[in-house]
Simulated scan of single mutants.
Amino acid sequence: MTVQWREYAEQMALLARNLLAQESVQATLDEIATSAVRLVEGCDAAGILAVRKGRAVTLAACGDMVHESDRLQAEYGEGPCFDLARRKDGERVYRIADMREPQPTWQRFAAAARTLGVGSMTGVLLYTENDDFGALNLYGRRPGAFSKDIETAGWLLASHAAVALDSARTIDQLEHAMETRHAIGEAIGILRERHKLSEDDAFDVLRRISQHHNVKLRDVAQRVRTDRTDPA
């Protein structure tokens, strides 16, 4: 292993700890994009793009050109980030060494990207065994900013990022579930005290209101806690 790769591996270890220390899923996404610009040589901007129900969604961005690039790909329905995020052709990585060269697959996007000042691009899918989180896309202003080694470097970064995202989402879901449980428990206590109900009957009141009004049970419980009003 060369000194350069050893230093990069050390940076990846620090990145992994930093990502796991973030307080939310969005903070983790933002830190991934920021870290890509900081750690990857030649990277002037970075973003994470996902495709939700056929629509391109920018999950995080570091650099002005990211939002505009994502917007163009959504408008044209083509582009390397867009295709990678929706797993077209099963690809997990792409690299455009020189945006000035013909790009038959993405002609309209390539022409527009050049006007944005994009000289080269590369991207890696953020995925774990069970989930895809979107594509991590790196932008260089000069052609040739990313060498062949970027595929390995990007894969290492994306692997750490995907694991951190999976962990952040799991923690977020657990915290949400705990908050929901706490809100419902407190609302049940309020109804029991106010109407002299059993625990089961108080919960049944919340459940029936939730179903009748097509409102989430947690929201009904939160209304009881906040307003201290009769949910009926």
Rank of each mutant, 00 (worst) to 15 (best):
M99L: 13
F146N: 02
L136M: 07
V205W: 04
S120F: 04
E179C: 13
T105S: 02
Q173W: 10
F146M: 03
E151K: 09
A113K: 01
D98N: 07
F133R: 05
S167H: 09
L157M: 13
F133N: 12
A135Q: 07
F146R: 00
S198D: 10
Q107E: 08
D200G: 01
V205P: 00
A113D: 05
A135T: 04
D149Q: 15
T170L: 15
A158W: 10
R194T: 15
D131Q: 12
T180W: 02
R108Q: 05
L116H: 03
A113F: 01
D98K: 06
G119R: 10
R169S: 07
S147N: 04
L126M: 11
V163L: 11
L126D: 10
A161E: 03
T152W: 05
A161T: 11
D149W: 09
D132L: 04
R142I: 11
Q107V: 14
V93K: 01
K216Y: 01
D201E: 11
R208E: 03
A97P: 03
M121Q: 06
I188P: 10
G144D: 05
D131C: 15
N214C: 13
G117D: 08
E193V: 05
H195V: 08
P104V: 12
G134W: 08
E101M: 13
G134E: 05
L165Q: 11
Q107K: 07
H213A: 12
S159H: 10
D166R: 15
T170M: 07
K148M: 06
R194H: 15
